[in-house]
Simulated scan of single mutants.
Amino acid sequence: MIGAFAIGTASAIVLIVAIQALGVAILENDLMLTVISTATLQGVGMLGISLWYLSRRGYGLEFLRLRMPTLRHIGLVVVGVFGTFAASIGVQSALTLLGYDGGEHEIVQTATGSPEILLALIPLSFLLIGPGEELLFRGIIQSRFVNRSGVPLGIVLASLLFAVVHIPAYGGLDSLPTIVGLFFISLVLGGLYEYTENLFVPIVVHGAFNAIQFAGLYFVLTSDADVALLLWPF
């Protein structure tokens, strides 16, 4: 996991420096920076380190339990999308009642000045964010935890790790209530993975959850609507 973030960060720096050297003012372009950071972290970093791990261990797709979806899997994707939003809304409501304010994802601040980046993030949610994070956290990390500790504890441990690594994106420990929300959302994804035994399901649910949030935020920022969004893209 650390390797994925290190490789992703290093790749982003190299790519940004190279583009800047070509005379493109990329540091002033929020859209290009967002696309590059997503492509390098989830694409190069998470997907890359996951494929390297599988190759090094001699594992095939059977280890990931990734296969073509059936109609039942498609139906469970729909259920999963509703489930993640239910978890999000439920946790947010509970935190509000207890007097806690959740942290705001850094993408909200960036998108406020450049809403167009959200339109790029919608397809990237399905192409890179969902596949990259689910391959690493569910396909590899959760599978290893489950093999060692059993299904319930394996899902909990993977979800805890998944939530913790998102702390920097929400501004540090002050975002702890929101991180708790991410933990519960991750439990839904982990449960879907074990129940369906098909990584396709959490990948698509993850991508859809983020894409819907990005689309909703774009609508709010580009219209006069005053809509409260639970923007917890992960």
Rank of each mutant, 00 (worst) to 15 (best):
G102R: 05
I212T: 06
G154E: 01
A6L: 13
T70S: 15
S186E: 09
G103Q: 03
L127W: 03
T40R: 01
G8C: 11
L71D: 07
I212F: 11
A120H: 06
L157F: 13
T196K: 01
M68D: 01
F162Q: 08
M32V: 12
G139Q: 02
L173V: 10
R65L: 08
D101L: 12
I122V: 15
R72S: 12
Q20Y: 14
F85L: 08
G190F: 06
A25R: 14
A163I: 11
P69S: 09
V81K: 11
S37L: 11
G132F: 05
T196F: 02
L15S: 12
L31Q: 07
V220R: 02
R148G: 07
A111S: 14
E116G: 15
V227G: 03
F200M: 11
L27E: 09
G113S: 14
L217S: 10
L176D: 03
P202K: 08
L124D: 09
M68G: 01
P177N: 07
E116A: 15
S50H: 02
T9D: 03
L121S: 06
F5W: 14
I140Q: 01
H105M: 04
F200H: 08
R72Q: 11
F85E: 04
T178Q: 10
L41I: 14
S93M: 12
L189P: 07
G130E: 10
A120M: 14
D226H: 10
G43H: 08
L182V: 01
E116W: 13
L15D: 03
A39V: 13
I16F: 08
T9A: 15
F85C: 03
I140F: 03
V108W: 07
L157W: 09
V14A: 15
N210L: 09
G48K: 04
S55K: 14
L136R: 02
A208N: 07
I155G: 01
T196I: 05
L119A: 15
P123N: 09
V79W: 08
E134F: 09
V44P: 12
E116I: 11
V17F: 08
F219V: 15
G48M: 01
I129W: 02
F82Y: 10
T196E: 10
L118E: 08
A111N: 07
G171S: 12
A21Y: 04
I7D: 00
S37T: 14
F82C: 13
T84C: 13
L187I: 14
A10Y: 03
L27I: 06
